[in-house]
Simulated assay, not measured.
Amino acid sequence: MKEAVLIIGGIYGALAVIFGAFGAHGLKKFLTQEQLKSFETGVKYQMYHALLLILSGVIFPFIGFSQNLMGWFLILGVFFFSFSIYGLVLSSSRDRKMAFLGPVTPLGGLLLVMGWILFTINVASVAEFLRF
């Protein structure tokens, strides 16, 4: 799981840069300011959590249930949160809003929150070994 967390963190980070550039340069002509702001929110959260995944992959051995669950919560949380925002924004810009994605975004947010909680618990449990 450790390797997967690091690899997916790197992939999410690279995609955040690509999507950020795409949003800033390629979508300005097609999106409203509100849609651009929503798209940027997806990109920011994706990048924040890509960095958290990489940090987690460096800090934790991913041998326990809690650490593995944290990894899955963060990976799936980013996917559901950020990618549903991208889908909602892009589909609404073409007047074909994929409304089924609406409930996916808060589910992704909940998974991210749970990932952060588990990150905090796991950091506290290994803090003496890391000498924080």
Rank of each mutant, 00 (worst) to 15 (best):
F79W: 02
M47N: 03
F30A: 14
M47K: 03
L31F: 15
G64H: 06
G64E: 11
H49V: 04
I75M: 12
M70Q: 06
L27A: 07
S38V: 00
F39H: 08
L55Y: 05
F39P: 06
S56K: 03
G71P: 07
I59F: 12
I54Q: 08
G71L: 13
L36E: 14
I59M: 08
F79T: 02
Q46I: 15
V78D: 15
M70W: 02
L36R: 08
K44I: 09
I59A: 05
Q33K: 11
P61H: 03
S84R: 01
Y48I: 14
L31T: 00
S66Y: 03
V78W: 15
F62M: 06
S56Y: 00
L76T: 02
F62K: 06
F65L: 09
Y45Q: 02
F81M: 07
M70P: 07
F73G: 05
S56C: 02
S38F: 10
K28D: 07
K37E: 15
Y45S: 05
L36I: 07
L55I: 09
I54C: 08
I59P: 09
F60E: 12
I54D: 04
E40G: 06
L31S: 05
S82A: 09
H49M: 01
G42D: 02
F80E: 12
L51Q: 07
K37P: 09
A50P: 12
S56P: 01
F73D: 10
V58A: 11
L27K: 11
W72I: 06
G64D: 12
A50M: 12
L53V: 00
F39R: 05
I54E: 11
F80L: 15
T32N: 12
G71R: 09
F30P: 07
K29N: 10
I63P: 06
V58Y: 13
T41A: 10
K37R: 15
F80Q: 12
H49K: 02
W72T: 00
F62H: 04
N68M: 14
G57F: 09
Y45P: 04
K29F: 14
L76E: 12
V78P: 15
G26R: 05
P61Y: 03
S82V: 01
G77L: 13
G77P: 04
I59T: 09
T32M: 13
V58F: 14
L52K: 09
F80S: 11
F81Y: 08
L55M: 09
K44L: 14
G57I: 04
Y45G: 05
W72M: 13
